[in-house]
């Protein structure tokens, strides 16, 4: 599903440049639930951003579901993101003046889906994730776990090829974290490819594969016997 070859990325910091990713070779098969681990500064978020086309690579190649991702301009990246990818963030990143339902319909709006269809789809996902009663509430009226589930619904509603999650449990307590991870595992069981960036061992252990990054290179890449959440 994802093929990355010899990926390099550096950032200019004034006069010096910071080499963040130093030759990453990395493949993800369809249906995998991958945890990308590493301490802060290891380059794990940068890797996720490049996979998410929020950032551009300097060197190397990146292929998503057989489509080479190159020569990205903002518009093209936006279309690819919209079509191929779903994002879940640590801080949920819901639009605070939109209800849960409106938040979930937003990516469909940018796909040009008709309003009725958008809402029907969004209802279905919110229902699936047990958020039906909360659909018309604003994010400020939801608990952290509910917010993250709305965010996951928003990421899933476009049926992306890959779900990218950046520290999705970072702002949640351990019980809620487990609930959210249970949902992630459920989605994965249904066949979705999911990448999770985390620095928590127990979250990583709930995945089928763990990739450890240190100083911009992959230190370890191993299959993991998935621990069921809850």
């Amino acid at each position: 599903m994802i093929k990355i070859k010899d990926l390099h990325k550096s950032y200019r910091m004034g006069t010096s440049s910071l080499h963040v990713l130093k030759g990453i070779n990395f493949e993800v098969e369809e249906g995998e639930l991958v945890a990308i681990m590493g301490s802060s500064g290891s380059g794990k978020s940068t890797l996720l951003n490049i996979i998410g086309m929020l950032d551009l690579l300097d060197k190397g190649s990146y292929e998503l579901d057989g489509v080479p991702i190159k020569d990205l301009d903002e518009t093209k990246a936006a279309n690819y993101r919209n079509k191929f990818l779903g994002f879940v963030f640590q801080s949920f990143n819901l639009i605070n003046y939109k209800t849960a339902l409106e938040n979930v319909t937003l990516p469909l709006y940018y796909q040009g889906v008709k309003r009725k269809e958008r809402e029907a789809l969004a209802w279905k996902y919110l229902d699936d994730f047990g958020l039906k009663e909360w659909a018309t509430h604003l994010p400020s009226e939801l608990s952290g776990g509910q917010k993250q589930r709305v965010a996951i619904a928003r990421a899933m509603v476009t049926k992306p090829k890959v779900l990218l999650a950046d520290e999705l449990t970072g702002a949640l307590d351990s019980k809620t974290s487990e609930e959210v991870m249970a949902l992630i595992q459920e989605i994965n069981q249904a066949g979705k490819t999911i990448l999770i960036v985390t620095h928590e061992e127990d979250i990583a252990n709930m995945c089928t594969r763990i990739v450890r990054l240190k100083d911009g290179i992959i230190m370890e890449d191993k299959k993991n016997k998935m621990v069921k959440a809850i």
């Binding site: 279309n79 639009i95 940018y110």
Partner: peptide, 10 residues
């Protein structure tokens, strides 16, 4: 930023 991440073009 969120809108852009969700696929809003410039």
């Amino acid at each position: 930023g969120i809108r852009r991440a969700l696929g809003a073009t410039p």
